[in-house]
């Protein structure tokens, strides 16, 4: 179970990502615990597996419209499926990597894996409940899911 300070790390990382990379802040809601089902996904999901001091996964999931606008704000002009996958993986990687500022070097993160088309074909740790951090950016909803034991 994560405590409030640990969750704050991910909330701050998400806020910082949109402020710096997209130069437009996102509204990041209060994290909530999912108790009875999977947290759900949007069209593209970037997944980071975590090992070491903590284990489990962190994923960022967003609709194509949010990723398209994000890419435009980053001056990117390739909006292919591959670039969408790259973008969603990079957001997940950046927020997870930034968490090492508080968690330290033993918070070991994988390279991102990406699923698309609203697929939820990836395993969540069975013995821990995920937290959802809701994100709203330019009227588009996304979420960061933190599932760590």
């Amino acid at each position: 179970m994560l405590d409030e300070r640990e969750l704050r790390t991910f909330v701050d990382g998400t806020t910082n990502f949109f402020e710096v990379a997209a130069q437009q802040p996102a509204t990041v809601g209060s994290p909530y615990l999912v108790t009875d089902d999977r947290p759900g996904v949007h069209e593209y999901t970037g997944i980071i597996r975590v090992s070491g001091r903590r284990s489990g996964l962190v994923y960022f999931t967003a609709p194509k419209t949010l990723l398209t606008v994000l890419l435009m704000k980053m001056q990117e002009n390739d909006f292919s499926h591959q670039t969408m996958c790259d973008a969603v993986g990079e957001v997940a990687n950046t927020i997870s990597g930034n968490a090492r500022r508080d968690y330290g070097k033993d918070f070991v993160i994988s390279v991102p894996t990406v699923v698309s088309g609203g697929s939820e074909e990836f395993e969540l740790p069975g013995d821990t409940r995920p937290y959802v951090i809701p994100i709203n950016w330019r009227s588009h909803a996304a979420k960061l899911v933190v599932c760590l034991r």
């Binding site: 910082n16 990502f17 710096v20 990379a21 130069q23 990079e90 990687n93 950046t94 927020i95 997870s96 990597g97 930034n98 968490a99 090492r100 500022r101 968690y103 330290g104 070097k105 918070f107 993160i109």
Partner: peptide, 27 residues
């Protein structure tokens, strides 16, 4: 140029021979 934001990683990189460190995200 990395998202890894802990000091130990930056020190490790510098000791291996890196000259500087820029955290992602960056402007």
């Amino acid at each position: 140029i990395s998202a890894l934001a802990d000091k130990a990683t930056a020190i490790d990189a510098i000791e291996k021979g890196a000259s500087g460190f820029l955290h992602k995200p960056f402007t």
